[in-house]
Structures are given as C-alpha cells and as structure tokens.
C-alpha cells in the first residue's frame, strides 16, 4: 500500500530541472545585430480588427481578439503633411507631438505644436476652452462658439481657426490655433506665445495652414 510518503521525488526533480532551465531564459540579456527600422515605421498600437463572429479562436485567445491593446496615450497617425515657414525652427519631435517649431524674436519665443488624437477628443468646444484656460480666459458657451471661430476650407480639409488673446504668467499671451478633423482623428495646430510676437506671426501661420495637405 502506498501513501503520501511515497511522493515521486524523481519526477519532481526532473520537472524542476525543466522548469528552471526555461525560467532562466526570461532574464537573459541578448545582444545581436538588427536591420534598421523602416523610416516610415509606425510603432503605434494595433487597433482591434473585427474578425467574423464565426472565426475560430486564435491560439488561446477568444475569437475576435488578437490585438495589441489600447495604450494609455494613443496618438493619431501621419495623415497630414505641411511646409513650415523658413524662419520657424523645427524642434525635435516628442512623445505627443507630430511636429514642433519654435519662433524666436530676440528674447521672445513662441511655440507651435502639431498634435493628433483619435476620435473627436471631446469636441471642438471642449478643446477651444482648454486652450482658453491655458491663457486664463473664461470658457465659451456653445452659443458663443460660432462667433469665436472662423471656418476655412483648405483643399479637402475643413479647418476651424481661432485667435484668443489672454494672459499667461502675468504677461499678455496669445493663441492662434487650427483644429482639423480628419479620418477618425483630430489634428491640432497651436501657436502660443507672447501676444505681440504671435500677432506678428499670424499671417505666417495662415500661410502655413494653407500648406497643410493630406498625405
């Protein structure tokens, strides 16, 4: 008669060895040579595709779900191109920005940011009020929205242009911005800086907007 005392030690040893050898691989640092990433590589998250409802399950995942999840900060694609004026200095791209420029005039500096996000990011009103908040302006109501924005058509793009003057850090500041909805995303072009500098750049900004094209 056998009992708990006859536990299979040889088996446990064998499986343990197998486990240890596969576990160590988790912490192995590897070094290798790799080809360069393609220049237009988009490391973005893969959105969920719709597999047919009778598609057989893939691996050990339920049907319809072989996705790389939604990240906490999804950004839009690269659907638009533009040409910046010569006197705008390009700044290195950052995590959130599709494009970034600095406009300097002596000591004053204005910042142009180009960002894109999926969906309508809360709607035009919410975003304009967010900008207004950045230069300490009161938020607009829905009825005031129409009076405070200018609708422009640039090629196939519908653009809403705004011009807000307020204060930031005690000094007069200005935001001239454009909101461009496009193919399930919304693009924001925002020029922000000291009031005088931005007012001078307004024409250049409008010209820059005119060069924005779908890719």
């Amino acid at each position: 008669m056998w009992g708990p005392a006859m536990l299979p030690r040889p088996l446990a040893c064998a499986v343990l060895v197998l486990l240890l050898t596969s576990g160590c691989r988790d912490r192995e640092i590897t070094a290798y040579r790799a080809p360069k990433d393609p220049v237009a590589a988009r490391p973005g998250p893969a959105a969920s595709g719709q597999l047919p409802s009778d598609h057989p399950p893939i691996g050990n995942q339920t049907g319809g779900d072989a996705t790389m999840a939604n990240t906490a900060v999804p950004t839009g694609g690269d659907n638009l191109t533009w040409t910046a004026p010569a006197h705008w200095t390009a700044k290195p791209a950052s995590a959130m920005r599709k494009g970034s420029y600095a406009i300097k005039d002596g000591d004053a500096e204005a910042d142009l940011s180009i960002t894109a996000f999926p969906g309508d990011t809360g709607g035009l009103l919410a975003n304009l009020n967010r900008w207004r908040g950045q230069i300490s302006l009161p938020p607009l109501s829905q009825d005031q929205l129409q009076a405070n924005r200018e609708h422009v058509d640039i090629g196939v793009l519908h653009v809403d242009v705004v011009d807000f003057a307020g204060t930031a850090n005690g000094a007069p500041a200005r935001i001239i911005g454009a909101v461009v909805p496009r193919e399930g995303e919304t693009w924001f072009f925002k020029l922000m800086g000291p009031d005088a500098l931005v007012a001078r750049e307004k024409a250049a900004f409008r010209e820059f907007l005119g060069t924005v094209r779908p890719r």
């Binding site: 988790d26 912490r27 192995e28 640092i29 590897t30 070094a31 290798y32 040579r33 080809p35 360069k36």
Partner: peptide, 13 residues
C-alpha cells in the same frame, strides 16, 4: 548606417 547593434534587456531584469 547599415545595421543596428542591439542590446536587449528583458523586463524581468
């Protein structure tokens, strides 16, 4: 310019 030399450190480390 032809290739990258990669050192990959797993998250567990």
């Amino acid at each position: 310019p032809e290739f990258n030399e990669v050192v990959a450190i797993p998250e567990a480390v």
